[in-house]
């Protein structure tokens, strides 16, 4: 892959086709763990990690099991199965081998086993028919995009604590309004091109 292609792919995954704000995948953690910057960071790291690992595993399942047998229509079920098992194994491995990392990722790791953003990236990769390296790279960058959006949103929500708004908007309503505005901002990136 050329470096131009790499930059185009990063731009696409992080800004133009941002998982949360443009594709609307992974909204649950986006709203759930965005109250504080540090929890948002922990969640973001866990998502990057799981997305990258899951895309490698699902690529193998897709290429060596589903495609040869012509059962691509089972990909949703197969991917969920693989991702859930993978995350469980990785969690056990981390607890034994790298307890520090296990503690840091903590509760977030099992939380995202069946997250739609993780499943989404696997299905998008399979639909695009990308190669192994391409899939893994795209998944990693998508995870970075997710973390980026999550951190942006958490920073805004921390400031909202001290803003004055009508009582009826307290909590989730104001968060949803903010998320909508943020998504509209990201729409502005559509059509962005550096190497025409």
């Amino acid at each position: 892959m050329t470096w131009q292609g790499l930059i185009t792919m990063s731009l696409g995954a992080i800004l133009i086709e941002n998982f949360v704000l443009v594709r609307f995948l992974g909204i649950c953690p986006f709203l759930g763990v965005s109250k504080k910057m540090d929890t948002a960071m922990g969640m973001g790291m866990a998502v990057i990690f799981v997305m990258t690992a899951a895309s490698a595993a699902t690529w193998a399942v897709d290429a060596y099991l589903l495609k040869p047998f012509g059962i691509e229509y089972m990909e949703t079920v197969a991917f969920i199965l693989v991702i859930a098992a993978l995350v469980q194994i990785v969690e056990m491995f981390l607890q034994k081998a790298v307890p520090a990392l296990y503690k840091a990722l903590g509760i977030y790791l099992p939380l995202i086993t069946t997250n739609c953003a993780v499943l989404g990236v696997a299905i998008i990769n399979s639909d695009l028919g990308s190669g192994f390296l391409e899939s893994v790279l795209f998944s990693f960058l998508s995870g970075v995009g997710f973390t980026f959006a999550l951190l942006l949103f958490a920073a805004i929500r921390q400031r909202l604590e001290f803003a004055e708004y009508p009582d009826a908007f307290e909590g989730f309503p104001i968060a949803l309004v903010t998320a909508g505005l943020l998504a509209m901002c990201f729409m502005g990136f559509s059509g962005l091109e550096i190497f025409p």
């Binding site: 399942v61 047998f69 229509y73 089972m74 079920v77 199965l81």
Partner: peptide, 8 residues
Amino acid sequence: AVLALGGM
């Protein structure tokens, strides 16, 4: 499909 998923 059954065999592949069951096996998995």
